[in-house]
């Protein structure tokens, strides 16, 4: 059930780079527990939009309303970083154990060691990688890295997670596990925006499908979630152009 009032509103966002307008007059509202698919061609500005939302990029123009309060970009950036976690297309894991990676953000919050350990254990359980807790993260497969990165963000209890092409370059099994994890995040009350070249895949219950074309945002009708028996091609065909 989505709450009627958005906790975050982004209005009239413009982003230019090297005289080229990447994002043009973007306005978006975010409510609790949403799963939003963001599609668009290469270079359409998907990643730029996610990076702006996570506070990594500063737009030339934007109006931000957080919890009903209009904030300047400078003031809103720490709040965005508190509430929003961004995961790169290929997530970066630090050169340390899986456990240490998951605990990284928790340590920044100066939580007691016991609390950190408990949360790390919960996160490992969520991604079913308890057996790899002590392994160096660089030794993991692509799918495992993706799950560790999601768990590392999940322990920080963000309100919104931004996943940039979370299933690109993953095999079928890893894709399916990532979708399960995204679904689990939604059930736990975390909103998720994920980008994809492809329309809706897996068994995800999407709240919205937004599409970027030449820097402009539009809303698309939602495609039906595919069932496990349905071949992927049929869901692709049913979703219209991406």
């Amino acid at each position: 059930m989505t709450s009627p009032l958005p906790w975050l509103s982004l209005q009239q966002l413009y982003f230019r780079r090297d005289e080229r307008t990447i994002l043009r007059d973007i306005s978006l509202d975010f409510r609790e527990t949403e799963l939003i698919l963001l599609t668009g061609q290469n270079g359409s500005g998907k990643t730029t939009l996610l990076r702006i939302l996570s506070g990594l990029l500063k737009p030339q123009q934007a109006r931000l309303v957080l919890e009903g309060r209009a904030l300047s970009w400078r003031r809103s950036r720490p709040l965005l970083r508190r509430d929003i976690c961004y995961l790169h297309q290929q997530p970066y894991l630090f050169d340390s154990s899986v456990e240490e990676n998951i605990a990284y953000g928790l340590r920044r919050q100066r939580l007691p060691r016991k609390v950190i350990q408990d949360k790390v254990n919960q996160a490992l359980q969520l991604i079913s990688l308890q057996h790899l807790a002590g392994r160096n993260s660089r030794e993991l497969s692509g799918g495992e890295k993706q799950r560790v990165a999601i768990a590392r963000a999940w322990v920080l209890s963000p309100r919104l997670m931004l996943l940039d092409e979370p299933v690109a370059s993953l095999d079928k099994r890893s894709r399916s596990r990532t979708y399960e994890l995204m679904s689990e995040l939604q059930q736990q009350g975390i909103s998720v925006i994920y980008t994809s070249h492809e329309p809706q895949l897996g068994n995800l219950r999407l709240s919205r499908h937004i599409h970027l074309y030449q820097g402009e945002l539009s809303h698309k009708p939602l495609a039906q979630p595919s069932t496990p028996d349905q071949p992927r091609e049929s869901s692709r065909a049913g979703a219209g152009s991406g």
């Binding site: 506070g55 508190r82 929003i84 790169h88 630090f94 963000a153």
Partner: peptide
Amino acid sequence: SDRRAWETALTLGASPLRAFLTLLHE
């Protein structure tokens, strides 16, 4: 170096100084 290390540290709530130290470690 991989810029994602710096960005990841920031998005996980690290201060710029802590993110810098993380980058040095990486």
